[in-house]
Design a protein around this nucleic acid. Structure first.
Lengths: 181, 181
DNA sequence: GAAAGTATACCGTCCAGATAGTATAGTAAA
DNA sequence: TTTACTATACTATCTGGACGGTATACTTTC
């Protein structure tokens, strides 16, 4: 733990700064203060602001990829397993460390390449989802609707009510269980 | 035209700066240069950066609201007209001045209240969509999937291919035409 | 086993450059 | 004469990041 968790603490602190104060206030000073270390210490771990944001994105991408892969692997039914995994993890697990999503906001703000790991991730998932044994367009719509929820929340445009969210979740999962039409 | 279009030109220039150089480079200098006016002239129209961003968001919200309201009003069939209007406009019209969406990015970066007009807009639409004569959960999913497309593009996470986009569009419209289940 | 060296993990200060916003003097046109 | 600007100069503040130092633990060498 000791060795690695320090860097994670910093990433978490950076996310919190973005979440609390917005992207423009994601500064090295603020991050260091939030993480309880000095600016010098922060720069020891992440030698530039860009490296810090890169770290946020990579951490997020790795976590997410692993979760969904595990979920898909443990699904007893082959047909639709990737779609279900995507829906399940995004609805139920990703919200627990939602603050990590703020890494995306930061990445979008800092530079365009820093989003590369995310683009690759979604490109891979899209491929799995389209070859998942269910109608690829329907599968894509399920994916897009799922994205719609978390992107709306991330952007602070529309926050779906909990009961409505559950109803949407159920319907999307039902669709993911129907065979090819 | 003369009086009002100057302000619009400035808003457009600001969007272009965000689109080309990212949120962090949306500066007053860069916006003025892009709009072909002096910094003093820019500040004459928008006395602060926040006012500029506010202008971007309000202009975007007004345009969007009007387009969808018109589309819904001219739909011969009552049932599902708001859902269809939302899907139609977002898929077909909003992409033409896509750069305006960058106002959202800027607003998200600058301050949280500047997104208020957008939040109100979406809150109103969500209400219409849920009372549109079709299953409200299904209607919400259609809305979310539509959001998924443009938010993914705005965020630069996933760009759907044109033919796939058309197929999704068709299926969503079909669903919006089916009666209540 | 002491001395010397090396790696890791920080701290705190300093500075150049960028930026928002102000001020001001002047211009053109309606 | 008011409106709609241009052009330039200036201030105050913030920020990234470089840098020099410190503390500790481990390793090598004699």
């Amino acid at each position: 733990m000791g060795r690695n968790s320090r860097k994670e603490e910093i990433l978490h602190a950076a996310s919190k700064v973005v979440s609390d104060k917005g992207i423009f206030n994601l500064t090295l000073d603020a991050t260091a203060k939030e993480a309880g270390i000095s600016k010098g210490g922060l720069l020891y771990h992440y030698p530039s602001k860009e490296a810090l944001v890169q770290g946020m994105v990579e951490h997020l991408a790795n976590n997410y990829r692993e979760k969904i892969a595990n979920n898909a692997a443990s699904d007893p039914i082959d047909q639709g397993k990737w779609v279900r995994a995507y829906v399940d993890v995004t609805f139920n697990q990703a919200y627990q460390n939602k603050d990590m999503h703020y890494g995306l906001l930061a990445a979008k703000a800092v530079s365009s390449n820093s989003l590369d790991p995310i683009r690759e991730l979604y490109s891979d998932w899209q491929h799995e989802i389209e070859h998942d044994g269910i109608d690829p367009i329907k599968a894509t719509i399920i994916r897009l609707a799922t994205d719609g929820i978390w992107l709306n929340e991330l952007f602070d445009i529309y926050h779906i009510e909990e009961d409505k969210k559950q109803a949407v979740y159920q319907k999307l999962k039902d669709w993911a269980n129907e065979p090819d039409e």
